[in-house]
Design a protein around this nucleic acid. Sequence first.
DNA 1: CTGAAAGCGCTTACAG
DNA 2: CTGAAAGCGCTTACAG
Lengths: 349, 349
Amino acid sequence: MASRSGPTLNMIASALDVSVATVSNALSGKGRLSAELTKRIRDKADELGYTPSQAARALRTGRSRVLGLVLPDIANPLFPQIAQAIEYAASTAGYGILIADSRGSVAMQTDAINRLIERDVDGILIVPRLGTRIVDVGRPLAVIDSPSTPNSTVSADHWQGGQLVMEHLVSLGHRHIVLIGNNPSSNVQNDRIGGMRSRLPPGGRAQVLWIEQHEDICGKGAPLQLVERVNAGATAFAAVSDLHALRALTELQNAGIPVPARVSVTGFDDLAWSAMITPALTSVRMDVASIARLAIEALLQAIESDPPGTTGAVTAETSSVPMTLVVRQTTAPPFVPINNQNAPEGEPA
Amino acid sequence: MASRSGPTLNMIASALDVSVATVSNALSGKGRLSAELTKRIRDKADELGYTPSQAARALRTGRSRVLGLVLPDIANPLFPQIAQAIEYAASTAGYGILIADSRGSVAMQTDAINRLIERDVDGILIVPRLGTRIVDVGRPLAVIDSPSTPNSTVSADHWQGGQLVMEHLVSLGHRHIVLIGNNPSSNVQNDRIGGMRSRLPPGGRAQVLWIEQHEDICGKGAPLQLVERVNAGATAFAAVSDLHALRALTELQNAGIPVPARVSVTGFDDLAWSAMITPALTSVRMDVASIARLAIEALLQAIESDPPGTTGAVTAETSSVPMTLVVRQTTAPPFVPINNQNAPEGEPA
DNA sequence: CTGAAAGCGCTTACAG
DNA sequence: CTGAAAGCGCTTACAG
């Protein structure tokens, strides 16, 4: 009953009058066969367009060669980048990616994980919901978040990214900077803000403006009252995300404050539209390809070292990947006494 | 070798001294067993935390209960919404979603499809790349694009969405409108533009501004020269995507043209940040949940009617789902003689 | 109403 | 160097 569409090992075997075991070995390169037979078998397999049955292989080996990817509220526009990079890294390694969305709540995150496990994934990649600590899912696990997250496996070095931003703003001459975030309990945001602060020169001011706290990253709502900040002397707005930067930018422009002539705006994550708007946003990019590759590597290692059927341990080593600054606004603050427009080295105070 | 982590039918069977066949029947409700035995078996299964082996089931039945989702260049921010809705609809129906990204080229789209087929997906959902016509992938297929796309299965009614936008602008008193798109060969964009045009009253002007054509939806590049259009009398900019609307909005603001006091800007797709910027964007939303549900339904029907192993036919019936207008800018054009601010019914010309 | 048996397609010791 | 055989966990006729 219920036969497959494609040819099977059996069909190759009988076409060549050899055993299935021999065909299997030839294709996998495991038993040592004569080079001649191996070639004949491989040619026949190609000719027939043989594809191994994942189901049979999985049943036999106890491994599905499928990984689960659990993402938090998908409203976060970073999702596509990560999903794309993970899918690429996984398929390069011969694995498929089953997605599961944990939108809404921590409970749904648990559901998502369970759904994946029921589908026999070999391991799970997760970008955890805020404040969640994923401990043991009974399967090898890789956590992608921030270096500050307990048992994180891989992440961007958000702190260092923050340093890049502040160094850049300071080199332009900015000394009074408003940092914008929306969630004081997000490790990612705190790392970015911490990094920025750590590079503020003596005498500089950097106050954090926490916009209203929403579960999802894009809080709608009351204006941020940025004009007051400008009047108070702020010359730069450094947001922890391009989303917040966009919100700040449009609000400033709407209030008639020219950007970047009067104030600069920077963000994080270099989202799809960041280069496209006017003015384009200076931003900091994570190396999603490397993060994905490292996450997959760590996960596969955990999978391959644990015998199937074992309750896999959480992978232990944490690595953090440097971020890159993408400069698109290079205007110096207008009222700081500096000599030239382009990034003076000195400290004009 | 390579046993599973969880309990098997066999373990339940021997714990209860019945046969595996009986356990299988009890759990699936297929053979008719005594209510009493059925209950005992189910309780035992729950107690042991039984999860069926997908691999074994797939091998036996010839169905993996996994669907593939192929997405075009993921730079399109609509992706998360769709992926989320599809994943939800699929998991409700007991299916998993394996993702494959066709970023870059048509060749990669083919690769993506092949990767999914090699993983034995039961069917494929695809948002095709521009200009691609997916004909036969040897597996049931559902195409999500525009009603104008040949063999589309489900899509939003982009034409009707365009009508909503134009009706709204016209009701506010706008008569000179610039339509913004970036790809004249996109069915989606053409439908939206066609719909908008179809509702332009006699005497109204609606010229299309095609911004430079990129594979990906967010073309960076030269300014759009919108100020000239404003000087020429345009009072509204209606883009085929929030992305283009954002680009227009920031460019106008940057040029010192107040939005929406002087001109209005509308988009499409109601992206995450559309409500958050200043001013918020009037937009048109697709009902992704319904689209996903219909796509999954059509696909599952095709899967269930074709015996496994058959080259599944492309599903035939096309349905299109109405879009919804989300009004966020209600300012009438300043120099059109109208009586009140809020959407006069007459035609002030 | 319940069970014995075959078989889905593969891989892996093991024997020849 | 190659093959016969067992078995992964399930489902489905079929027999009792």
